[in-house]
Design a binder for these strands. Sequence first.
DNA 1: CTTAAAATCCCTATTTGTAGGGATTTTTTT
DNA 2: AAAAAAATCCCTACAAATAGGGATTTTAAG
Lengths: 203, 203
Amino acid sequence: MITLVIAEDHQALIDGIRSFLEYEEDITVLGEANDGEILIDLVRKKQPQIVLTDIRMPKCDGICATKTIKKEFPNTKIIAFSMFDQAEAIHQMKDAGASGYIMKNSSLKKVLEAIRIVAKNGDYFDDSITTTDVTSKEEIVLSTREKEILRLIGEGKTSQEIADILFIGKSTVDTHRKNILKKMNIQGKTDLIRFAVERKYDF
Amino acid sequence: MITLVIAEDHQALIDGIRSFLEYEEDITVLGEANDGEILIDLVRKKQPQIVLTDIRMPKCDGICATKTIKKEFPNTKIIAFSMFDQAEAIHQMKDAGASGYIMKNSSLKKVLEAIRIVAKNGDYFDDSITTTDVTSKEEIVLSTREKEILRLIGEGKTSQEIADILFIGKSTVDTHRKNILKKMNIQGKTDLIRFAVERKYDF
DNA sequence: CTTAAAATCCCTATTTGTAGGGATTTTTTT
DNA sequence: AAAAAAATCCCTACAAATAGGGATTTTAAG
């Protein structure tokens, strides 16, 4: 018997997956969560074999939840279920310890397939993900400070505002901006903002 | 018997809804589509009573599809199924002729409820939508040109680039930008870009 | 302890966008 | 045909971000 918990922002999708899995005798859904924090609690209580989780979620996203769960329960397998096939998200989920990555535009049959494979200690990464290792070029590693600043940029703050919030000089914020641009190789002349906003939205 | 077609970007969600609706004897799913164009074709062929459609879809989005369908088949009821409760999207769907609007984070039970109500010529708009008429403040109406420019802003183009693309002066683009800012009552480049990007993403 | 990485700060110059004003032409609506 | 709305263009001034350079201090990692 395979035990499973589902974490998803959209209740409709959870309901759908549950309906679908009801036909499968060998799979039991132990519970569901609508955000990362609830998911972590749920895993502690129910200790499922497999967690199927969205990446973009309130409170603590899929990546953050995966890290916590893997630290506490290394044997719990995690499958990411995402809208986007962004190299960075996939990479981060892999790093966090996920055993699978499925796109929401694939069928539930594939989800079922993935659950069964992962339950047998296998890995399942969506076919449509060509990006995986190839495009994951030079290991995009932003420092903690840089991520913090990127987040604030995404929230629409100006350099001056960010400087005030973090109690540092505007010059420092500008330097970080430049470094982020360099690391991300955003040739796009302008607009780190777009990058920050899209990032926030995509996972 | 209620006949239905489903249009959704994410196959997983379609599969889930189908599984869920299989238990309901009075509802038949006639078909499914992953984008707006296929949806329109499908409606022409199958002529369902009800269409359950995502807003954000490739090719032709939910709003555009709704308009076309309502023109050709005024009796076909349309229920929008969306991730976001943005006043503008709801407003546009209502204008296009939708009879319902449900959020993806509500349960499939609510979807079922909506289908039954709409089948009986009722309207169903999600409870969580407080926005509907209230926040839909001063009728955000962007002109065609303004929308076009907003789209290009969302794609990361600079005013000069937009000017070159549309064969107009940079001054004109700047004026449009200012007018958009004024209409939207937002201040700052950041916010404009965020608005453009979010809009692109959200429906 | 020493080194490398991260974080901090400053300078100059240029580009891009915002904010205010005004103005003309084309299209659409009445 | 007249009025309203949309689209076009230009001016000045200012704010914010990018791009190049250099420099110091903290904080980890070896």
